[in-house]
Computed example of a mutant assay.
Amino acid sequence: MKEVARSKVYYRPIEAAIRWAGLLRHQQEILFAMSSPRNLPRTLDYPRWGELLLCMDRIYDAVINRELPYGKNGVTLNDESLLDSTELTIRHIDLKRWVRTHYPELRPGFLFSRSERIVHPIITLEAGHAMLVEREALKAQLDQRRRQLLALQALYEGLLKQAEAIPACTNGPISDRAETTYLNIIGGMLTLMLGTSPSGKAYSSFRTQEAVVSALVAHHHSVMGITERTLNGKFASARRRLRSANT
């Protein structure tokens, strides 16, 4: 079987799409399955058939919208009568230039050398600005999460000190009065963390009880009682007790 050249001076659209999708070894079977230059079966038993269809659509879209020069037998003509012809061709250098401009993140091997594929695509000014904005937003979000973590740690340490100061916590079962006090404190803090100010601004970035539980477990999973099941149970009891006290 004659080996098919990976790169050529010019390509028919289907030849370029087959190489772009990495299906060159199946080129003869694919060409045989075509009923016309632009009519490919929508489904065929190849692992990247959907990618092949997408590559064909991209190429013809560029040709029809005059983004990609085309012609006949490697000679640029831009003759619209060629759009449905088997003789329509696209030069290698034009196809490479178009891919670099419109799909800089995609560098197929039949168009670009290994060294060209290793080099990072050109980042436009708009893309660079968007990346910087996103970076600053993520940095601000990280700072906010750190402050919230410090607040939760301070709350946790304060509760530990209160527990140590009450003899009932170490010498025997906790009294109903002490339990009510703790549940009211926990319920109040939880309601505050998940609530908003009169102007509608959230007091914290936590929106649900599950988010608070996840943060506590993530940072204090080794501490007795800091488990998802225990926290959800205590938080639910605390919120019920607080609602009952406020009615």
Rank of each mutant, 00 (worst) to 15 (best):
G22H: 05
I30P: 00
R6D: 12
M131T: 02
S7Q: 14
D176F: 13
D57G: 03
L155M: 12
G158W: 08
A218K: 15
D61E: 13
K201A: 15
F110I: 02
I185H: 03
R19K: 14
L183M: 12
E15I: 04
P41H: 05
S7L: 08
T101P: 04
W49H: 10
V75S: 07
L83A: 00
R229S: 12
R146Y: 04
Q27A: 13
C55V: 00
D79Y: 02
S222V: 04
F112Y: 08
D45L: 14
V9N: 12
L190F: 02
R114Y: 09
I123W: 05
S35W: 07
Q209A: 09
A151S: 09
R38K: 13
E126T: 10
I93D: 14
M1E: 11
W49A: 07
R38M: 05
R66F: 08
E67D: 15
L160D: 13
T89Y: 06
F206Y: 15
G195A: 08
L54T: 12
R66E: 13
V4Q: 11
G200R: 09
G188W: 04
L88D: 02
L88Y: 05
I90F: 07
K201R: 14
M189G: 06
G200T: 00
L132S: 08
T76H: 00
S85M: 06
E116S: 02
E29K: 13
K161A: 15
I174R: 11
I30L: 08
R114F: 11
T191N: 14
P108A: 06
A151H: 06
